[in-house]
């Protein structure tokens, strides 16, 4: 298979898209947020349970492509146990990575698999959609966020 394709669809991404983790609603979530990509119709809903300012549990539901499902799945794994204040800096790093391919300082762990996305400009929105939803959940925004009303 081609190099760029396997850069985009790394094994971790294929695995998470096929068997997404934390793919269920939460009963009585502290926060929920929706992300929507009107261009492709993809939709995700994030459910967050907070203990103080710590994300005690985070899950998602919705439909999307391999990239957005894997991104949401890995996001839930990554954010569980983090403090709310950590989400925005992490969002900024992910955003930088999927638009430029630069991973930056410090280990991003499994999230680094999305670096290949930057070679596919049409797919950046798929990878970043769940992160926009996470940001909205942190900020307590009730309204769905759209990939067309925020910068990709």
């Amino acid at each position: 298979m081609f190099d760029e394709l396997s850069d985009l669809y790394q094994q971790v991404i294929l695995d998470h898209s096929k068997s997404p983790r934390n793919f269920r609603p939460l009963e009585q979530p502290s926060r929920t947020a929706q992300g929507h990509n009107p261009l492709c119709g993809d939709n995700i809903t994030l459910y967050v349970r907070l203990e103080g300012d710590v994300i005690a549990d985070i899950t998602f539901q919705g439909s999307g492509c391999a990239i957005s499902r894997a991104s949401a799945s890995l996001l839930t794994e990554s954010l569980k146990g983090r403090r709310l204040a950590e989400v925005k800096p992490l969002f900024d790093r992910i955003h930088e990575m999927v638009t430029t391919g630069q991973v930056g300082d410090g280990d991003l762990g499994k999230l680094a698999v999305f670096a290949g996305v930057h070679k596919f400009p049409a797919r950046v929105k798929c990878a970043i959609l769940p992160w926009h939803a996470a940001l909205a959940a942190v900020e307590g925004k009730g309204a769905p966020v759209s990939t067309e009303t925020v910068n990709p």
Partner: peptide, 9 residues
Amino acid sequence: VHAHDIVTV
């Protein structure tokens, strides 16, 4: 397989 993944590949 999502339609966008079909088209990308």
